[in-house]
């Protein structure tokens, strides 16, 4: 709790946090939606914002506000799946390669490098095209996760390598700690800021990537996400017809989401930075 209070002193954290809570609340609202997000023509088409439909309606005859609540929910789920799954892989691979070294290190880093050198975007497009019908929310998340761990695994490995050389590693072994508790007690506190900041940037990346895939029409378009909302708005000429509410809603939500994530990440990694923590300890 002490940590949270200190974090809230940073305006970037406070603003980012509030934005995220608002977006999460919006996503949560989707469970109370009066409309089915997939069905068309439930309301009059192309109406501008009014009291009845606060963000207007779209060309498919859907309420933009309620549609947006589904979109933000689904986009967040995709990004969280991508972020969390790739974090687990990156942490496991990074720790294992860094601590074990030798053959394990070479094999794991070989795989990571393999993923890094292939042109990621083309492969994503190719896979998405082939599996288009299977590109549900979960599968999109997993696909993004598959491509999102390699670089961060490398960064984590580098940090473990340098930590392994420090004397407290030996003290911990001399204190009778097993490898597992050595890693979790000595190394995790140093890598948490890294894991956390890569998690947030990975989430942001996944949100952007999902939008790109959707605009290219490579996911299942009937599922509302920030990406598919934009895709529909663009293909139905929302700009040309002056239906600004349809295109502005997903755009604004995306920008707010990305800015909030960025501020959170900067603020939290500054707070967790071991050097800053040591300074705070020393200054007591």
């Amino acid at each position: 709790m002490e940590a949270l209070r200190e974090l809230f002193r940073d305006y970037r954290f406070a603003v980012g946090f509030v934005f995220l809570v608002l977006l999460a609340a919006l996503a949560f609202l989707s469970f109370f939606s009066p409309y089915d997000p997939v069905r068309w023509l439930q309301v009059p088409r192309d109406e501008p914002p009014s009291w009845k439909h606060i963000l207007g309606t779209n060309a498919k005859g859907q309420d933009v506000f309620w549609e947006a609540t589904f979109a933000i929910r689904n986009s967040l789920v995709v990004a969280l799946i991508a972020g969390l799954v790739s974090r687990v892989v990156a942490v496991l691979v990074g720790f294992l390669a860094g601590y074990k070294g030798g053959v394990v290190d070479r094999v794991l880093m070989g795989v990571a490098d393999g993923l890094l050198v292939i042109p990621l975007f083309l492969i994503l497009v190719l896979v998405a095209m082939l599996l288009r019908e299977a590109m549900t929310i979960v599968n999109t998340g997993l696909l993004l996760a598959f491509f999102g761990w390699a670089w961060d695994a490398r960064t984590i490995r580098a940090q473990i390598l340098s930590l392994r050389e420090r004397e407290f590693t030996q003290t911990s072994l001399l204190s009778g700690n097993s490898t597992l508790s050595l890693v979790s007690k000595e190394y995790v506190p140093f890598t948490i800021p890294l894991i956390f900041s890569t998690l947030i940037s990975n989430i942001a990346w996944a949100i952007g990537m999902e939008i790109v895939l959707a605009i290219l029409g490579l996911v299942r378009l009937e599922i509302p996400t920030l990406g598919t909302m934009l895709q529909w708005a663009i293909t139905r000429q929302a700009m040309l017809l002056g239906h600004w509410w349809w295109i502005a809603t997903p755009l604004a939500l995306t920008v707010i989401l990305l800015v909030a994530l960025y501020w959170l990440s900067v603020s939290v990694s500054e707070y967790l930075d071991p050097r800053m923590r040591i300074q705070r300890i020393g200054a007591r």
């Binding site: 004397e167 003290t171 001399l174």
Partner: peptide, 29 residues
Amino acid sequence: VQAVFQNPFETFNPLRKVESYFFETVFNY
């Protein structure tokens, strides 16, 4: 066999309390 190192500030993890190494040694052994 136990060891003592050159730099006492590196001997202990700067993010952990020194006493935790003592208790770990006692309980692990």
